[in-house]
């Protein structure tokens, strides 16, 4: 079944240079995906460690353009995971400081920086992009941008890394995609020994996503979820504690005030749920952004962007959580029945 033929990106064949540079990935996701990637305009808001990872991965994949939006300056803490900003850029704007290295990753991708605050950006701004990724924002800001994206039909992602822990969230609204499904087909004649072959069939599917509000409103204390916790581990609880910390202090836990912040985190945990559902050890590794964790979460987030842009393969619906203790990365579907 040849799905989406009419939607295919006709007339924009890849150049020889693109064919060569992207050879190894075209062999994975196909020409059509690569052509779709080439048209995608992405906004990455929040250029910390995970922002740098996402930016790197999507630039390498060959999207059309990436805008880096960040009002913050480069600090020492960034050098734990933010490899796009050079050491010398300390004190300078993080988005601008990241441009040069970002460009050198793939000269075929347009990169630009915006040093204004995310909060100053109105609906029309976001409508310029196919995908918007927001990192390091408060819940209210995430809700605001998410709502704009819904209105403008822009694919919305959020994500964060605290220390070795991280998550990402997707609101793709209504998303249609093609999925290759492998099946065994009998090819032997009736009187022969049964022989089968693997064949792939492309299937078109559509998913509907809830908004970020579903995550904010989710009741982590509901009996059904508490029961599930044993199986999945407490990553979602940890996410909630860290979000609450950010809401309460307008910052994330800081290594400079490590002990005091761990006490605060414990207090918040005890306030919102039972102490037993999230052990104290989890608070040991939530400071700065630790590079390998940013790589894992940023890798997953970027892969989701690639899937969405290329309309190929099922996206994860809708929260991905990475538990550094077990190295388990799992998907929670929140807000959908």
């Amino acid at each position: 079944m040849d799905v989406d033929k009419n939607e295919s990106v006709n007339g924009v064949e890849l150049t020889e240079a693109e064919n060569e540079l992207y050879d190894r990935q075209i062999r994975l996701w196909g020409l059509e995906s690569q052509k779709r990637l080439r048209t995608a305009k992405i906004l990455v808001a929040g250029l910390g460690g995970i922002g740098a990872e996402v930016t790197k991965n999507i630039i390498l994949s060959g999207v059309h353009s990436v805008k880096l939006l960040d009002e913050n300056i480069v600090t020492e803490e960034d050098f734990c995971a933010q490899f796009l900003a050079p050491r010398a850029a300390i004190g300078k704007n993080r988005a601008e400081a990241s441009i040069e290295r970002a460009r050198s990753l793939n000269p075929m991708v347009e990169i630009s920086a915006d040093i204004e605050s995310l909060s100053t950006k109105e609906a029309d701004y976001f409508a310029n992009f196919d995908v918007v990724v927001v990192i390091g924002a408060s819940n209210s800001e995430l809700l605001r941008v998410n709502n704009i994206c819904r209105e403008k039909q822009v694919k919305f992602f959020a994500g964060d890394v605290w220390g070795m822990f991280g998550y990402c969230f997707a609101d793709l609204q209504e998303h249609s995609f093609v999925e290759d499904v492998a099946k065994h087909k009998v090819i032997s004649k009736p009187n022969e020994k049964v022989k089968t072959e693997l064949v792939t069939a492309s299937i078109q599917r559509t998913l509907n996503f809830p908004s970020f509000g579903a995550v904010v409103d989710f009741d982590i204390n509901s009996p059904a979820y508490q029961k599930k916790l044993k199986r999945t581990g407490p990553a979602l609880i940890l996410l909630r504690v860290l979000q609450e910390f950010r809401e309460a202090f307008n910052r994330d836990p800081c290594y400079k005030t490590r002990d005091a912040d761990i006490s605060e985190l414990k207090r918040i945990r005890n306030e919102i749920t039972s102490a037993s559902s999230l052990s104290d050890e989890y608070f040991e590794n939530v400071f700065a952004q630790v590079s390998p964790a940013a790589a894992v979460v940023g890798g997953v987030l970027a892969q989701e962007i690639i899937k969405v842009v290329s309309k190929k393969e099922a996206p994860h619906c809708n929260v991905f959580l990475f538990d550094p203790d077990t190295c388990c990365g799992f998907v929670e579907t929140i807000g959908l029945n």
Binding site: L28, E53, A293, A294, A295, V296, G299, A302, Q303
Partner: peptide, 13 residues
């Protein structure tokens, strides 16, 4: 076939 994201995730682990 090889892509950046899988390598990044794997190396992170």
């Amino acid at each position: 076939p090889a892509i950046a994201t899988t390598n990044a995730i794997t190396a992170g682990v």
